[in-house]
Simulated scan of single mutants.
Amino acid sequence: MTEWISGAARDEAAASFHGAVDRLTTRIPGAYTRRGASGTRLVFTTFPLATLNTVCAGHDLDLGEVERCAQELSQTGAPWSILVRGDVDPTLRRLAGRYGLTGTASLPLLVWDAMPLPSAVSAGATARKVSGAGSEVFAAALAAGFGMSAEVARLLALPTLLDAPGMSGYVLDLDGEAIATGFNVLVGDHVGMFNGSVAPQHRGKGHYRALVTARLQDAVASGARHAFAQTSPMSRPLYESLGFRLAESWTYLMSAD
């Protein structure tokens, strides 16, 4: 159940999420975003991940606008999805079906207001920022944490992202090895928490908590007063233990494959 959070706070978090994605696409060769007159957003990152290439339906659903964006994304050859905040209108689901988007994935949008954070101890490990010069280290840790290919990990670790103003990559080092990752994007007084991962053999030992805490502390020191994150079922309890709350659920209509 969604905890009580004002509609304005939910809208601000959603707008900040989209603002972060807009900023990211300006740093990725070939990527772009566009917003239609009715509020439909088209996001193309070039990455081969359906949740990163989306048609985001506006609050006032305009099926014609959604379809024009869907036609455009469907021609890119990249996996893509239609994103809806909350419940899916049946007519939109039928439109998605015409493009083969018969699968569904739901992700929570969690929000956090700046508050004192508990000390997070990760024995023998140290959190640090990673610049573009360390992109290969960041990519290797991403690949290990997410179980993704090195090729995709390198796209998420582009030096143009790691060196961008208001964007920060992080790793947690243990015995000389980067074992956990995170990526922050500042948008006004919000910070987006992206690309959080920890290598499977290092899970359950407090390492991920230590890195998330360090990232929040760094963001607050940089002026953030709120944070947002879309989490997996595995990481959601950790975020909630640090004070994150469910704002709303987002539905992605995508290929069932």
Rank of each mutant, 00 (worst) to 15 (best):
A180K: 07
H207P: 05
V130K: 04
L186W: 00
R154M: 08
S197V: 11
R34E: 14
R34H: 11
Y239N: 06
G147R: 04
P90M: 05
L110T: 00
D113H: 08
Y239C: 09
L110N: 00
V84P: 00
A164W: 06
L156I: 10
P237R: 10
T251I: 13
T102M: 10
T51I: 08
A221S: 15
Q75E: 13
D113F: 02
V212N: 10
R215P: 04
L155M: 12
R10H: 02
L73H: 01
H207D: 05
G100Y: 09
Y32T: 12
V43W: 04
F47K: 07
A70N: 02
T251W: 05
I28T: 13
A143S: 13
V187Q: 12
T2F: 04
L186A: 10
T251A: 03
A214H: 13
L174H: 15
G132E: 14
S232H: 01
A57W: 01
R27T: 10
R236D: 11
A125C: 07
S197W: 03
N184P: 06
P165L: 04
L238E: 10
S222E: 15
L142P: 00
L24P: 06
E136L: 08
A139C: 05
N184G: 05
L24R: 12
C56R: 06
S81T: 07
R128L: 07
G39Y: 01
D163I: 12
A9N: 09
L142Q: 15
G223H: 03
A144V: 02
A139T: 06
D87Y: 03
A210W: 06
T102H: 11
